[in-house]
Amino acid sequence: MRRALGLILATSLATAAHAEPLADLAAAQKATIEAWGKVPFSQQNVTFVSESSNGYGVYKARGSNVFKPGEPIITYGEPIGYGWKQLPDDLYEMHLMADLDIVDTSGEVLWSKQGYMDTRLVSHKQNMEFKFDMTLTVDGLSAGKYKLHYTLHDMTSGKTSSFDEEFELASGG
C-alpha cells in the first residue's frame, strides 16, 4: 500500500513538474502571437537560391546574381508580420499574393505581372514560419543589369510590403 501511495505521489509530482513548463510555453506562445501582431508586414532572408527550397530556412543560397539567358531566377524569402484568418474547425488561413516588375537601370518597367504568386496555408496553428519561392525565367532581354521589384500583399490584413533584387543577365548561353 505504501509503495502504491509512493508511486501515485511520484507520478503526481512528475505530472505537476511537466505541466508547469508546458503552461510557461503556452504563455510564451501567446505573447509571441501578440508581439507578431505589432510587427510591420515585411520580409526577411530574401536571397537568390540555386534551387527551390525544401522548407522554411532550408535553402541553398546562390553565390551570384548573374544569370545566363533562359536560366531560372529563384527568389527565396520569409514573410513576417502577416495576419491569419480564423476559419471553422479551429483552422487559420494565411494568404499572400505578390506582384512582380522587371525594371531596367533607368527605372523603366519592362515587364509586369500582378498576381505573380498566390499562396495560402491552412493550419491548426497560427504559423509564423512561412517561406516563399518565386521562380522566373527571363527570355528576350538583352544582356545587362536589371531589378526585380516585388510587391507582397497580405490578403488577410490588407497590408503590403515591397522589396527589390538586382540581377544581371549575362550575354550568350
Rank of each mutant, 00 (worst) to 15 (best):
M1N: 15
G6V: 06
L7C: 15
L7P: 04
I8V: 12
L9M: 14
A10I: 09
A10S: 06
T11Y: 14
T11Q: 07
S12I: 12
A14L: 13
A14Q: 12
A14I: 12
A19F: 15
E20N: 08
L22D: 06
A23K: 13
A26K: 09
A27E: 07
A27N: 08
A28D: 08
A28L: 09
Q29H: 14
Q29R: 05
A31Y: 03
I33A: 07
A35K: 10
W36E: 01
V39R: 07
F41Y: 10
F41I: 08
S42R: 02
Q43V: 04
Q44V: 15
N45K: 09
N45Q: 14
V46N: 10
T47N: 14
S50F: 15
S50Q: 14
E51D: 09
S52E: 15
S52G: 11
S53D: 09
S53M: 07
N54G: 14
Y56F: 15
G57Y: 12
G57D: 06
Y59E: 10
K60R: 15
K60V: 09
A61C: 14
A61P: 13
R62E: 05
G63C: 03
G63M: 02
S64A: 06
S64E: 07
N65S: 07
V66G: 01
V66L: 09
P69N: 13
E71W: 05
P72D: 10
P72V: 10
I73K: 02
I73N: 01
T75Y: 00
T75S: 06
T75F: 01
Y76F: 11
Y76T: 11
G77W: 00
G77A: 07
I80L: 15
Y82H: 03
K85T: 04
K85W: 05
Q86M: 15
Q86V: 09
P88E: 11
D89L: 15
D90N: 11
L91T: 08
E93M: 08
E93V: 02
M94T: 03
H95E: 04
L96R: 00
M97D: 00
A98K: 00
D99N: 15
I102H: 00
I102W: 00
D104C: 08
T105R: 11
S106I: 11
E108K: 11
E108N: 14
W111S: 06
Q114H: 07
G115I: 02
Y116P: 00
Y116R: 01
R120W: 04
R120S: 05
V122N: 02
S123E: 05
K125L: 10
Q126R: 04
E129D: 13
E129K: 12
F130T: 03
F130C: 05
K131H: 08
F132Y: 13
F132C: 00
D133G: 06
M134V: 13
L136G: 04
L136V: 14
L136S: 10
T137F: 12
V138M: 13
D139N: 14
G140S: 05
G140C: 04
G140T: 03
S142D: 10
A143L: 07
A143G: 05
G144L: 01
K145R: 08
K145A: 12
Y150P: 00
Y150W: 05
Y150C: 00
T151V: 09
M155F: 05
T156Y: 15
T156A: 09
S157L: 06
G158D: 09
G158E: 15
T160I: 07
S162Y: 02
S162D: 12
F163I: 03
F163T: 01
D164W: 01
E166H: 04
F167V: 05
F167D: 01
F167R: 03
E168D: 13
S171M: 08
S171Y: 13
